[in-house]
Nucleic acid binder design. Structure first.
Lengths: 239, 239
DNA sequence: TTTTATCATATTATCAGATAATATGCAGAC
DNA sequence: GTCTGCATATTATCTGATAATATGATAAAA
């Protein structure tokens, strides 16, 4: 039988059908359009809607289930799980949430966690970081400086800086929080592409404290950096 | 053609083929038996190994990919991702990791995070918690007391207590950390089934501080509870 | 009336065997 | 050497089956 023509479906990168279905359903769930109280479309219906075969639909369902968004059962069908089950730290879920929540609210939530995690991570990095690990932090900072000088985007370097600190703290669970930071930086970059240059000196202070193995100073410098960034962003959001 | 008889494969609940394949591969990846440097088996090979059709294998692959463990690409095949991409806070990944890591190491990592998160959560709960939310904390504590009195397992109530505090802190990302606590309590329970009775008074102190809206006291009480628990567990692990 | 046992049915779970898309590496041209 | 085009291996997607299972209806029993 002739292959079905994939429906054009308008916007969206649509790298492949699977990705499209996952993103589309994921977003609908996060938005609340599909929720635990409502009956979820059957595999067959989803297939018809997306112009996809059952295989693709089922793979998408498994992908969303792995993120804690839905569960499926023989005869019962698919159902949306309560938000408490959602893997909010999953990069995709994080982005879907970010794109649907009020910016200020999401940002407040995000920075509350960052302020909880990162100062302690900086403190631990100053204590536990190997010289090699600290060198990576240094290198990331150098890249940030370079980006500031040349006026190119320093988002990647900024992210690398914060991730390197998490890595130097020697706690894998802590490192996981990198996703949060990535989203946070992405927002910051969209709001103000030069913002990170302003905060370069504060990054420097964090770095110096870690190099000096001064754990308290490192923690404080990081706390200061994050507080100031939050302030700065708040002003941008409310402006 | 006759349906293939699902291989008995020995132990394991084996609720269904899909779950079995996911758990089996997930564990192998976490263990490092399958790693980024090694070529990953092809879909066809996996199918042969597990006695499963390609559909099941592909669904399992998507499920593991959603957890950040692997990625697959046309022609290139499947590959294991670097550990930094793993969703360590996913309940399954957490359990796989727990079952393969040295207990002391895992426990240290876990409590480092809990000590970071939960005192602040308790503090915020004392400030932001609605009366209804605080009532839930109270109810969980009552259930813990009851369990202690009757000698039944209080793990569920204990988990409910800590989750209720996270919920009362009004930060969805914070709530996500409940998975960590669940694993932590599970370990504690396996090591010493009566341990939670010992810590009942410390839980009471946390609860009282939250009811009294004394945020600092709540934070300190939680910190104390966790430190003592960690101490207690360390002794058990090394004994 | 209430409970328990039986059964039909709807939906996911799994299987089988296709074709399509695509990244890789090789071979040949420049 | 570098580029271009082609063959190939592997995943991506489709199609159409059969199997397993939870649900609700129905019937039987208490």
């Amino acid at each position: 039988m002739a292959q079905q023509i994939p429906a054009p479906l308008g916007r969206g990168p649509k790298r492949n059908l699977f990705t499209h279905v996952v993103a589309s359903l994921g977003l609908r769930i996060i938005k609340g359009e599909l929720n635990p109280a409502l009956p979820f479309p059957k595999e067959a219906d989803l297939g018809a809607e997306f112009g996809a075969s059952r295989s693709v639909i089922r793979e998408a369902v498994k992908s969303l289930a792995a993120r804690g968004l839905i569960a499926s059962q023989t005869r019962t069908g698919i159902r949306v799980l309560e938000p408490i089950n959602w893997n909010l730290l999953d990069a995709e879920v994080l982005n879907w949430r970010y794109s649907t929540m009020p910016q200020a609210e999401f940002y407040g939530e995000l920075f509350e966690i960052r302020l909880l995690i990162e100062p302690e991570a900086a403190r631990l990095a100053a204590i536990r970081g190997s010289t090699a690990e600290i060198a990576i932090i240094e290198k990331a900072f150098a890249a940030m400086s370079e980006a500031a000088r040349t006026g190119t985007s320093g988002v990647a370097a900024d992210l690398a800086f914060h991730r390197a600190i998490l890595a130097a703290a020697h706690n894998a669970l802590l490192l996981q929080m990198g996703n949060l930071i990535a989203v946070g930086l992405d927002i910051a970059h969209r709001l103000s592409s030069e913002s990170f240059a302003v905060f370069l000196p504060m990054h420097q202070r964090v770095l110096d404290a870690i190099i000096a193995r001064d754990s308290d100073a490192a923690g404080n410098a990081m706390r200061h950096l994050l507080s100031e960034t939050r302030e700065f962003m708040s002003r941008l959001i409310w402006a």
